[in-house]
Amino acid sequence: MFLICVPGNLCPPESFDALPPDKYVYEWMRLDPIPSLQEAAFELLKIATLYDNVILVGHSTGGIICMQAALFDSTGIIKGMVLVNTGANTNGHKDIRSHVKELSSQPITDVFIDQYLAARVQSIDSVSANILVAFQEYYKSLSEPSIRAAKMLQSQVDTDLIPELKRIKIPVLIVHGILDKVRPVRFAEEIHSHLSNSSLRTLPCGHCPNIEMPSKFAQEVLEYVSKLNDRNLM
């Protein structure tokens, strides 16, 4: 099985460093022109065709990109998904329209970075110094990062995948930090209830299990991959 990881809004590829190095991280935030949700999902599906037995791992915004790609997949390229602290819509997701407006008009500064992360993790002390630096460097490397993030969020405001999730038949692992203030666990439970072949694992952390509890996150993902491998060998 080959992992293609899809980061959340403004999240660097290093946010998946806990997973084995033999993977591909799809940096949709670097695409030009700035993609919508649907455009990012189409591009992800094209990348998936380059590999065999693909498993998508999507965090936050990356998770809804993965779900959309799975719904676009008519040839069975995608064999499984791991959805991390994400949702199939933005219903009740803070004041999302105000957040879009705020992102569009606010420059990305070091103070913004600190506040952005602090609002998404249970404790900033749980995040390694290397990851914190990676976030800072990533923001600085992007062209118009706030505009890019705002456009993707706007795409999500106008999207609700819940009615379509029943079409996804591949095995799906849902991992969710139960202390998440951005995406409460009810979003994970909603996805779980609409997928016919899913399992839900909760962790005692905030919005970013992949950087708050990297070892436990990696364990959950690798156990899921191992089960899929065993199934394919039978």
Rank of each mutant, 00 (worst) to 15 (best):
K151M: 05
K101S: 15
S199K: 15
K166Q: 11
H194C: 11
F112D: 06
S74R: 10
R201D: 07
L222V: 11
I168P: 01
I34W: 09
E43W: 03
K169W: 00
K169E: 08
K169P: 00
V225K: 14
F2H: 11
L233R: 15
E14I: 02
A129K: 11
L117E: 12
A88S: 13
P12R: 12
S215D: 11
H207R: 12
L56K: 00
S155Y: 05
D22R: 12
I168S: 03
P209Y: 14
S128K: 11
L3F: 07
G63L: 06
V25G: 04
E43D: 15
V82S: 09
Y51W: 09
K140Y: 04
N229F: 07
L165F: 07
Y51N: 02
I78M: 07
Q219H: 13
I147M: 07
V157H: 00
I124W: 01
L103T: 06
I47F: 00
A69Q: 02
Q154F: 15
E190N: 13
E223D: 10
Y24F: 12
G80M: 08
D160H: 12
R167N: 15
E164W: 07
E137Q: 07
Y139G: 15
T159E: 15
F187A: 04
H93N: 08
M81I: 03
L153P: 01
I34R: 14
C205P: 06
T109Y: 05
M29T: 09
G8Q: 10
G80H: 12
Q154G: 10
P107M: 03
G206W: 05
S105K: 13
L10Y: 09
D158L: 13
I64S: 12
L179D: 12
G62F: 02
G87T: 11
L153D: 03
V172W: 02
D52G: 04
P107D: 10
E164M: 12
Q154V: 01
S226P: 00
L31A: 10
N210E: 12
V185P: 05
L132Q: 13
S196C: 09
D180C: 04
L71M: 11
V121L: 08
V25F: 02
S196E: 13
S196H: 02
P33A: 07
Q122Y: 06
P35L: 04
R120Y: 03
Q122R: 09
Q219S: 13
Q68C: 11
N89K: 02
L200I: 10
N197D: 13
P12Y: 10
D114F: 09
V6S: 00
R30Q: 09
N197K: 04
I65D: 09
V54Y: 06
N210R: 00
F2V: 08
T61K: 04
P145L: 09
Q136V: 08
S226L: 02
T90F: 05
W28Q: 01
N197A: 11
S104G: 13
L50E: 15
P214V: 02
G87E: 06
Y139R: 03
V225E: 06
M29C: 05
L103E: 03
L50C: 13
I170F: 00
D22I: 07
G8R: 05
C208G: 03
E43G: 03
S98A: 15
A188W: 02
V172K: 09
L195W: 14
L56G: 01
L200S: 10
D32M: 04
F2E: 08
V25Y: 00
G206I: 05
S143Y: 09
V127S: 08
P7W: 01
H176A: 07
Y116W: 15
D22V: 04
C66P: 00
M67S: 03
D230K: 06
V111T: 14
